[in-house]
């Protein structure tokens, strides 16, 4: 019979404590030692050779209590539990539950650090599995992020709608978009047109034509400096809200963005507020019949220089 955990331990002269742990021999699969908790006086490791008899709740030792007390204190760090080391077949030989069943710390593991080695090996293997996956996953998520720029001309209405010089007139137009797997849909957008007088034109173009280029740098259109119609993207260059043509108490008629109160004059120049650059001019052409066409461009908001994103 194997000594049971919590069994009382009696020496030849008196009771000295109880069984706190048992130590198995990994080779013979038998209990080799007991760890006796000495009633608050530490723990001692007692060889099974010193055991005289074992009953259900008592372990009788041959030695006297003073001999047991004289044994060196138990060194827990020299042992590992059965949860920490696998010894084939050992569990079939254990009949002491519940509690801590120990086996001597294998000498090989003390120096080789096998556990640490296998832990690191697992990380490295994980890295080798994860790394090749990282790129496809990133590309998978990035698929729609960088759509090609669209340089089609869009009809937005007739110039007859513009009645007053140097004033903003909003043109709403519908644009067909086809996004990934979605059916083609119509979205509503707007631009602001200004019929500019020569001083305003001069402020905008500063005596030079304005050239628009595509992503490869190829010129796609030039707004002539003497063409009186200006088309401003409907997106505020501050944080991308929609702005309006409004009356300001001090500045008169201005473009005002209600989000963060950026104010622009008819030439798109910033008069007040946080916008970092003037309103964005778009390529515009007006046919002899007055039909207005623009290229629907959008630029990154919040930057001093223009970066086209649509």
């Amino acid at each position: 019979m194997q000594p049971q955990l919590k069994s009382k331990v009696r020496c030849a002269d008196r009771e000295v404590g109880e069984v706190a742990k048992v130590i198995m021999d990994p080779l013979s699969h038998e209990v080799s030692h007991l760890v006796v908790s000495m009633n608050g006086a530490g723990e001692r490791q007692v060889s099974m050779g010193a055991v005289q008899t074992v009953t259900d709740d008592l372990v009788q030792l041959r030695s006297s209590s003073s001999e047991v007390m004289a044994l060196p204190p138990f060194k827990r760090e020299d042992y590992v539990t059965l949860h920490e080391v696998e010894i084939p077949g050992l569990e079939r030989h254990i009949h002491v539950t519940p509690g801590e069943v120990l086996v001597p710390f294998p000498d090989l593991e003390r120096n080789v650090k096998r556990r640490k080695f296998f832990a690191n090996l697992t990380y490295v293997t994980g890295l080798f599995i994860g790394l090749p996956l990282a790129f496809p996953v990133l590309k998978y998520l990035m698929k729609p992020m960088y759509a090609p720029l669209d340089n089609r001309w869009l009809k937005i209405g007739n110039i007859g709608k513009v009645k007053v010089d140097d004033a903003g007139t909003q043109f709403k137009y519908k644009r067909n978009v086809k996004e990934a797997y979605m059916p083609e849909a119509e979205i509503e957008k707007n631009v602001w047109l200004v019929k500019a007088t020569p001083p305003v034109l001069e402020k905008v173009y500063q005596g030079k034509d304005m050239e628009f280029r595509d992503a490869t740098g190829k010129a796609i259109w030039t707004n002539k400096k003497d063409m009186p119609y200006l088309a401003f993207s409907g997106k505020c260059p501050h944080l991308g809200c929609g702005y309006k043509w409004r009356k300001h108490k001090i500045l008169g008629q201005v473009f005002l963005c209600p989000c963060h109160l950026s104010i622009y004059d008819a030439s798109g120049k910033v008069l007040e507020g946080p916008a970092p650059r003037p309103l964005d001019l778009l390529p515009i052409q007006v046919s002899p019949s007055g039909e207005v066409q623009i290229i629907d461009m959008e630029f990154k908001a919040g930057t001093k220089s223009q970066t086209r994103i649509v």
Binding site: L141, M142, P144, M145, Y146, A147, V177, E179, A180, M182, E298, I309, V310
Partner: peptide, 13 residues
């Protein structure tokens, strides 16, 4: 911002 929008402007993505 492109990652969250799934493109240059807000939409289905």
């Amino acid at each position: 911002s492109r990652f969250l929008k799934g493109g240059p402007t807000p939409g289905q993505m």
